[in-house]
Design a protein around this nucleic acid. Structure first.
Lengths: 206, 206
DNA sequence: TCCTGTGAACAACTTCACAGCG
DNA sequence: CGCTGTGAAGTTGTTCACAGGA
């Protein structure tokens, strides 16, 4: 099997969103052309993306929606629940605690902060610990993913603590200054960057 | 000038973050090699990215940090303030109202929701209007960018209202169902998708 | 027949390697 | 000499076009 482009994985998540939507209409079969038009891409790209992982379709017919959903979830590794720990219960952090990530298979098991008035409380049923507890709790509860929503200047040390706790991957809202010690996947959500790209696109023509 | 890859624009925003950081050290000159190592990419890619927009450097020396910052801001169109309207004052929305986007040149001027208890209030100094006012307020205040943080099922109509108000670009946290009528740039921030990609990367090897 | 899966052609992006200027 | 800017080569990703199975 050839190396798989990262954009293919991103599109897979998009296919999943479309499938979830199409399922509601009661359809059972989906063709590459229909899925493609939902995503505004070419049908051959849909088939290419899927073919990296096997032959899921039926020639002359299309793809079974249920099967396809199952396959994509398996590929993305979300066929089983992922346990998540969240560091930083500020603006973004507390919004995430209320965000329905559970329906996508991501369960936030524990939150962390340094503010005394938060520690020991439960927010939306999720207990808040002191940040110094990150390594212990991550290890004890077997958390898979860490979300970092703390200020820029402490993001690096929080990441190191998660790694000490055996985290397998990190999603960060703050740029992690120095590349962290152990090699685990790290992804970023940067709201300012998205707005800047949008700004560029606006100025480009209009 | 050749067509500019979207990844180049994304990297430009990253260069800006690095420059902001490096500036604090008091440095005045920056070489492509140093910027590249900050971003974990090759130096020739940095030079290629910048060369799409002109010749900003001095051969044998490097780039003036101040000049480079100014140029990149100009390219991204953030050399002047962008006015932003935010629809949806829920979890994510209210977090964004407190988020320091101002320091990146994005000023949230107005917020919108449908909950009676919010309308007429000010949050962090930003007035909240009813969502039916979107077209009027966007037009009157000359808002450039709309951020959509409402539930999926009403995201489409909110987008249409913004377009009626003359918005130039949209950043959405909810997938917009049908592609909106007028052709303006739309970008997405999908937290679930990022977690899914992370999940894939985790399972891939470890 | 119709739609998938896939070599082969094509397009986009990155790196190489070096000319050229300060 | 040292670093930028850039053709040309190399690599990666997308589309074409069609063989092949239901």
């Amino acid at each position: 099997m050839r190396r798989i482009p990262e954009v293919t994985i991103r599109r897979l998540t998009h296919y999943l969103r479309c499938i979830e939507f199409i399922k509601e209409t009661g359809a059972k079969i989906l063709q590459s052309k229909e899925l493609a038009s939902f995503c505004s891409i070419s049908d051959s790209l849909v088939r290419r993306d899927l073919s990296y992982f096997g032959e899921f379709g039926t020639k002359g017919v299309g793809y079974s929606i249920d099967e396809l959903e199952k396959h994509i979830k398996k590929i993305l590794g979300i066929d089983r629940i992922k346990k998540v720990g969240l560091a930083g219960v500020g603006n973004i952090g507390s919004a995430l605690l209320k965000f329905p990530l559970k329906k996508n298979g991501f369960h936030i098991i524990a939150a962390f902060d340094i503010k005394k008035e938060l520690i020991g409380k439960k927010i939306n049923g999720i207990p808040v610990y002191h940040e110094k507890e990150i390594p212990r709790i991550f290890k004890e509860k077997g958390l898979d993913i860490g979300i970092i929503a703390v200020p820029q200047n402490v993001a690096g040390e929080v990441a190191e603590k998660m790694i000490k706790g055996g985290v397998k991957g990190i999603l960060s809202f703050a740029l992690l200054q120095c590349p962290v010690s152990k090699k685990i996947p790290i992804r970023y959500i940067e709201i300012a960057a998205e707005l800047e790209i949008l700004s560029y696109e606006i100025e480009k023509e209009g």
